[in-house]
Amino acid sequence: MKQAIKLFSLLLIIALSTGCKKKTIGLNEEFELDFSKTVTVKADGKKFKIRFAKLVEETRCAPDVECIWAGEVAVRIELDHTELHDIGFHSQYPSSIVYKDRTIKLLEVNYKDGSYNKEEDYSIRLKVE
């Protein structure tokens, strides 16, 4: 019985540590990043981190509302825990930036149904080239 408990405990520790690993993304790979989450990008043997830090502005048409203007959206990303950049589909912000000789492109800004303008329910889709 003790061996079964030890085995179960070991398997549980392995499962928990595997589930906590951060995702690593390669070049030209589209990926989704939830609010406040971080991914590691591996490019040419070098790595850097991207974190979705903030919903800067959301003026797109809210669900179930008829709008005559599509609106704009901008988000803030944090790079390597040191640099902050605002990107978006917006007249004041670019939709891509260059960092460490790589272009980071914003492809989409999404939110869960019923969570319009709730920062914690947003995700972004990015691609690093």
Rank of each mutant, 00 (worst) to 15 (best):
M1Y: 07
K2C: 02
K2R: 03
K2P: 01
K2V: 08
I5F: 08
I5T: 13
F8R: 10
F8G: 10
S9Y: 00
L10M: 07
L11F: 00
S17V: 06
T18L: 09
T18M: 10
G19H: 00
K22F: 00
T24N: 00
I25H: 04
G26R: 05
L27W: 00
F31E: 15
E32D: 13
S36W: 13
K37T: 10
T40V: 12
A43S: 14
D44T: 01
G45K: 06
G45W: 00
G45Q: 11
K49T: 10
K49V: 02
R51N: 15
A53Q: 15
V56R: 01
T59V: 05
T59H: 04
R60D: 06
C61W: 04
C61D: 03
A62I: 03
A62Q: 12
C67I: 06
C67R: 01
C67E: 04
W69P: 03
W69T: 06
G71W: 12
G71L: 04
E72S: 04
R76A: 15
R76G: 11
R76W: 01
E83H: 03
L84H: 11
L84Q: 12
H85S: 11
I87L: 05
G88N: 06
F89H: 01
S91M: 11
S91N: 15
Q92D: 14
S95C: 10
S95Q: 14
S96V: 01
S96C: 03
I97E: 07
V98R: 12
V98Y: 15
I104V: 10
I104Y: 01
I104S: 06
L106R: 03
L106I: 05
L107P: 13
V109W: 03
Y111K: 10
Y111P: 11
D113C: 02
G114I: 07
G114Q: 08
G114A: 09
S115Y: 07
Y116C: 05
Y116Q: 13
K118C: 06
K118T: 09
K118R: 05
E119Y: 02
E120V: 09
D121N: 12
S123V: 02
R125H: 10
K127S: 12
K127E: 15
K127F: 06
V128N: 15
